[in-house]
């Protein structure tokens, strides 16, 4: 029995002497972050050795520390991927600064807010739909979709009771541009709301069946939309003066709420102290209008007008289910 133990021990000793040891002794354990393949040695350096035999000392130091790091990595769970052995690294421990700030969640659009409130869920639309007419699949939206069919028609019906000389092609084109413009405006409003800017009223949205209220609002707006803000616009005979338009001025009592006055004064001070960039609205506006003009010219030059001689006269189906637009601020989602 004793012989057996002795021989086993001897064998082990022989094996050990054959290879150099992988054991490394350090007074203080290394701080190892395996996720970053990083080891930090908190032990004090041997200053004398470092000065005299720098490279030899550093290589021995590096060897010991690498050995400890490798020992740790070899303890990690391994798997075989495509014939090579890989170790699964833990997540990095050392917290490093980010490259860019944490992304903020995208602000909800007005529609998304409303849908959430009402519990309306998105129905996933198929990317393509079957078109019976051309016996092929076509995109549901975008380029070559049926949405733009109206613009590519070589012939259009003239609705009953419509002016026969009215340009139906131009009408369709204009309707499309206005839908696009409305969408763009709503996008802008969403951005304004998200960046906590003042969201102005929508003005007037397009409706097929404008109400009396809608028309009177349009009239007042049109009258005011001159360079002199409607000062010289003639009024119709028997026209009633417009009520409730414009801003109402409010005067605070001379003596009264101190806290309100304090907050108002502080508000002014903070506004003065704010060093934000001021946007030259007029300039931006001008630029925008110029661009728009250029765009229009470009599209006009690209697409010469089509011949509009042949017109059928079948009444166009009009949406009766369109919600009557009231004068309120509610969202109007009339179908066109």
């Amino acid at each position: 029995m004793a012989d057996l133990v002795e021989s086993v021990l001897q064998k082990a000793a022989e094996k050990e002497s054959k290879y150099k040891s992988i054991e490394v002794h350090k007074d203080i354990d290394l701080d190892i972050d395996a996720g970053n393949l990083l080891a930090v040695d908190p032990n004090p350096l041997d200053a004398k050795k470092l000065r005299e035999k720098r490279d030899e000392y550093l290589i021995s130091l590096a060897r010991d520390n690498t050995q400890l790091l490798i020992n740790r990595i070899w303890e990690l769970p391994v798997e075989r991927v495509e014939g090579t052995i890989v170790a699964k690294l833990p997540a990095p421990k050392t917290i490093l600064p980010r490259e860019k700030p944490i992304p903020k969640p995208k602000p909800e659009t007005k529609w998304q807010q409303y849908a959430k409130l009402k519990g309306i869920q998105n129905k996933k639309k198929a990317r393509k739909v079957w078109d019976d007419e051309i016996k092929d699949w076509r995109p549901t939206w975008g380029y070559q979709s049926r949405v733009n069919d109206e613009l590519n028609e070589w012939v259009l019906e003239v609705p009953a009771n419509a002016d026969p000389y009215e340009d139906q092609f131009g009408k369709a084109k204009k309707a499309k541009t206005e839908r696009v413009a409305k969408n763009e405006l709503q996008r802008m409003r969403n951005i304004a709301r998200a960046s906590k800017l003042k969201v102005p009223g929508v003005g007037l949205t397009p409706t097929d069946t404008p109400s009396k209220d809608h028309l009177s609002k349009a009239l007042t707006l049109a009258k005011k939309s001159t360079a002199s803000v409607g000062k010289f616009t003639d009024s119709l005979p028997k026209e009633k003066p417009v009520k409730n338009t414009g801003k109402k001025r409010k005067f605070e009592p001379n003596v009264g709420d101190m806290s309100k006055e304090k907050s108002a004064q502080l508000d002014i001070l903070s506004k003065m102290a704010k060093a934000g960039p001021t946007v030259n609205v007029t300039k931006a506006m001008k630029q925008h209008m110029l661009e728009e003009e250029q765009q229009r010219q470009k599209t006009n030059s690209e697409r010469p007008k089509k011949a509009k001689s042949i017109k059928k006269s079948i009444k166009r189906k009009q949406g009766k289910d369109t919600k009557r637009g009231g004068g309120g601020k509610g969202k109007r989602r009339g179908r066109k």
Partner: peptide, 24 residues
């Protein structure tokens, strides 16, 4: 009929500041 494109009291005026954020 529509006021987005042409009306004088233009809501876009208020968005002029935002207009730099164009869609790609």
């Amino acid at each position: 009929m529509n006021h987005f494109m042409s009306s004088g009291c233009h809501p876009l005026k208020c968005y002029a500041a935002l207009y730099c954020r164009r869609k790609p």
